[in-house]
């Protein structure tokens, strides 16, 4: 069973709450996905049109909240957002995002590492969103990240896992769970991440903007489960060539 910072999860699919066409559909889709942890963002209240309060929709008993620091452009902004999240009753969990480039929304490795270090010391359970850089993953673990969240491809691009080679190294070396985040556009992408040995995946856009988000949420749930089962049953071994039995060639020197 997946355990992050001592908390057990029976579902390896984490959900997002952004980009849904309505609160009602979001609620149903999350329900169908079976996920137990969901991300939320923090924003200033629009005083002229406050709109729905997401906290009145989410069942906190059912879902563990993973506030993100989306919008932060450097470590200081992310740290400020994190403190807001905690003050808002969001708990200690945090998906740390530092994305200075508004075009690609790729995470800043230097600021992410710096913020992780500070926030871990403040008692946050930090899950940093990161580019799929194996050394960065290790450095983040060294400063106390509870999990690492490498991207499959840039946020919202639906391109799947373009960083396969690096994510494989990250998984191989990891001392904490690896959650593949961003770019998973189809259930097959999620299944691949799980087959590779990822501990969990986080999916938002692909479910939220699907023709039928509720059915798509189910599809992702099944894909994640199938991928995990395949991984656990010993997949991931690709035979590069078949074994030919041969005589004692080359070892005649042995006594």
């Amino acid at each position: 069973m997946l355990t992050i910072a001592g908390h057990k999860f029976s579902s390896r699919l984490f959900g997002g709450t952004g980009k849904f066409s309505s609160s009602e559909i979001m609620k149903k889709a999350l329900d169908a996905s079976g996920c137990e942890m969901i991300t939320v963002a923090l924003r200033r209240v629009n005083l002229n049109d406050p709109g729905d309060d997401i906290m009145s929709i989410i069942d906190r008993k059912r879902y563990l909240l993973l506030p993100n620091t989306s919008g932060a452009r450097d470590a200081d902004e992310a740290i400020r957002l994190a403190r807001f999240a905690r003050a808002s009753g969001g708990g200690d969990w945090l998906k740390l995002e530092v994305t200075p480039d508004p075009r690609t929304l790729l995470p800043d490795p230097v600021e992410t590492l710096r913020a992780t270090e500070v926030l871990v010391k403040e008692g946050f359970i930090v899950l940093p969103y990161m580019n799929a850089d194996p050394i960065l993953a290790l450095r983040l673990q060294d400063v106390g990240a509870a999990a690492v969240m490498p991207l499959g491809s840039p946020i919202g691009t639906n391109q799947g896992i373009l960083t396969r080679f690096q994510i494989e190294i990250i998984i191989e070396q990891a001392r904490v769970p690896v959650v593949v985040d961003a770019g998973l556009g189809a259930p097959s992408h999620a299944a691949l991440a799980m087959e590779m040995g990822a501990d969990a995946v986080l999916v938002n856009t692909a479910i939220a903007v699907a023709g039928d988000p509720v059915i798509m949420a189910q599809a992702f749930a099944k894909a994640v489960e199938a991928g995990r089962m395949a991984y656990e049953s010993g997949l991931g071994r690709q035979q590069r060539e078949s074994m030919a039995s041969s005589p004692q060639s080359g070892l005649e020197f042995l006594d």
Partner: peptide
């Protein structure tokens, strides 16, 4: 043994 010989990981 055969599987182990050519396992990628």
């Amino acid at each position: 043994v055969d599987r182990a010989l050519f396992s990628t990981r």
